[in-house]
Amino acid sequence: MTQTLDRVIATESALQMIDELRGRHGPLMFFQSGGCCDGSTPMCYPAGEFNLSDTDVYLGNLGGAPFYMGLEQFAYWEHTQLIIDVVAGNGGMFSLDNGTGRRFLTRSRLFTDEEFRLLSNQPVDRRER
């Protein structure tokens, strides 16, 4: 059996907010736009409303919503697991969390050496599985 690791996960509060937003807007997607460290803001869009490029990388699903980032930015984050959380504040102007009084926030943790070796055997996808 092959073990896999998630490159992106969500806290329970983030999953609850994803469910809320899905109830209002239908299927969702995420794109990590800019930022190279903790405190960056992932953008949440209605599914298909953000045009992905051939160089965007699919990192996984959060409560059924695919999560992407650009390949160039992925080079900064490849050694970390992204942990999507929710905090008080305003979301990005075009992100669906804007106006809710809460926003998504990216936290991270470094993969251990063993985890990173495991990840090297998992291909980085350009499209959702």
Score class of each variant (00 low, 15 high):
Asp54Tyr: 06
Asp54Val: 10
Leu52Thr: 02
Glu72Asp: 13
Phe74Glu: 00
Gly99Tyr: 09
Leu21His: 01
Thr80Val: 08
Glu72Ile: 12
Ala88Pro: 15
Gln81Gly: 09
Asn51Ser: 11
Gly70Thr: 09
Gly70His: 12
Arg24Ser: 09
His79Glu: 14
Cys44Gly: 04
Glu72Asn: 11
Phe30Ser: 08
Asn98Gln: 13
Gly48Arg: 12
Asp97Gln: 03
Leu15Ile: 04
Phe94Trp: 14
Ala14Asp: 01
Ala47Ile: 12
Asn90Ser: 15
Leu52Phe: 01
Glu78Trp: 11
Phe74Ile: 01
Asn90Pro: 06
Asp38Glu: 15
Gly26Cys: 09
Ala14Cys: 00
His79Gln: 13
Ile18Met: 04
Asp19Pro: 05
Asn98Met: 05
Thr100Val: 13
Ile9Tyr: 01
Val87Asn: 01
Pro66Asp: 07
Ala88Lys: 15
Ser95His: 01
Asp38Val: 14
Phe74His: 00
Leu15Asn: 09
Pro27Cys: 01
Met17Ile: 05
Gly63Tyr: 08
Phe31Val: 13
Pro46Gln: 14
Ser13Val: 07
Gly92Asn: 12
Asp54His: 09
Tyr76Arg: 10
Trp77Val: 10
Gly64Arg: 12
Met69Thr: 07
Glu72Pro: 04
Met69Ile: 07
Met17Ala: 06
Gln73Ile: 01
Met17Gly: 01
Ala75Asp: 14
Phe94Ala: 14
Phe50Tyr: 13
Arg24Asp: 03
Leu71Tyr: 10
Thr41Asp: 13
Glu78Phe: 12
Met1Trp: 03
Ile84Phe: 02
Val57Cys: 08
Ala65His: 00
Ser13Pro: 08
Thr80Ala: 12
Thr41Gln: 13
Cys44Leu: 11
Met43Asn: 12
Ile9Asn: 02
Asn90Ala: 15
